[in-house]
Amino acid sequence: MYALIMNNQVVDIEKREINLSEYYHIDLIPHFIECDDTVEIGDTYTDGVFSKSIIQEQSEVGL
């Protein structure tokens, strides 16, 4: 499972067991980081660590 990271944010999750280089342009490959199934779109990725967005957590409370 891989997270696609842009600007320290998870913008997509790739759950398929695939060779990424056959499915995505080569320039995107370095942006994929292996992750576990707790990671979600919108999470942040800083210094090698995934963390839940504070905004996202507040959103859930607010809703």
């Binding site: 842009m6 600007n7 944010q9 913008v11 997509d12 999750i13 995505y24 967005s53 905004i55």
Partner: peptide, 20 residues
């Protein structure tokens, strides 16, 4: 998905969200 990709030929990623 959030990303659109035509094989490994060309790809476009989504915009970010949840930002102040």
């Amino acid at each position: 998905g959030s990303t659109a990709s035509f094989s490994n030929i060309c790809s476009a990623t989504s915009g970010g969200g949840n930002s102040w």
